[in-house]
């Protein structure tokens, strides 16, 4: 074997592929974004079990019912779980180190039965912490309409 085996006998080629995928959010999420543009937080309620989805979803999976009752929810909620991010995804898709780590929290708004996961301002967080949503109604990108959560008091 020796030196001969060290050389890869199989020529390799790399195949350049540049796929572009999209994602249609649908009318329920569109309504959620439209609400935030007016400073409102809108959830959808299942008519059968009464669960309130935030972000809203069209179908209650447990009841197979159309969640078509809209409810305006307060900006306030409670942290259900949290973690710390050390990197972020840059515009070109690369991972870049954050100068200061950021807190990411799963927040259940008062009156909602599901959670939104978003950045939490500040350096400390704990489960059960009371927080409120910081909206940015003028944001160009709909994903920036909910800027972050902020600890209360």
């Amino acid at each position: 074997m020796g030196a001969k085996a060290a050389k890869d006998p199989v020529p390799r080629v790399s195949i350049p592929l540049n796929p572009v995928f999209g994602w249609t959010v649908g009318n329920w999420m569109e309504n959620f974004f439209d609400g935030m543009k007016e400073g409102k937080i809108l959830g959808s309620r299942c008519p059968d079990c009464g669960r309130v989805f935030l972000p809203p979803r069209m179908i209650c999976e447990r009841c197979f019912a159309k969640a078509d009752e809209w409810v305006e929810l307060p900006a306030t909620g409670t942290v259900q779980a949290c973690t710390e991010a050390a990197v972020k995804v840059a515009e070109n898709g690369d991972m870049v180190d954050l100068e200061n780590p950021e807190i990411i929290a799963m927040v259940k708004h008062d009156g909602a039965d599901t959670c939104i996961t978003a950045r939490l301002e500040g350096a400390d967080a704990s489960i059960g912490m009371r927080v409120e949503a910081v909206l940015n109604p003028g944001a160009e990108n709909v994903l920036d309409l909910l800027a972050a959560y902020r600890p209360m008091g």
Binding site: P11, V13, I15, L17, P19, V20, G22, W23, T24
Partner: peptide, 25 residues
């Protein structure tokens, strides 16, 4: 299928990668 969200040509190309490799060579 919800083709309008995706990239069907890209999807098909992943079926034919073996051919693509040979052609590149």
């Amino acid at each position: 299928e919800k083709q309008s969200d995706g990239n069907s040509t890209m999807g098909l190309n992943t079926v034919a990668l073996a051919d693509a490799a040979a052609q590149l060579q």
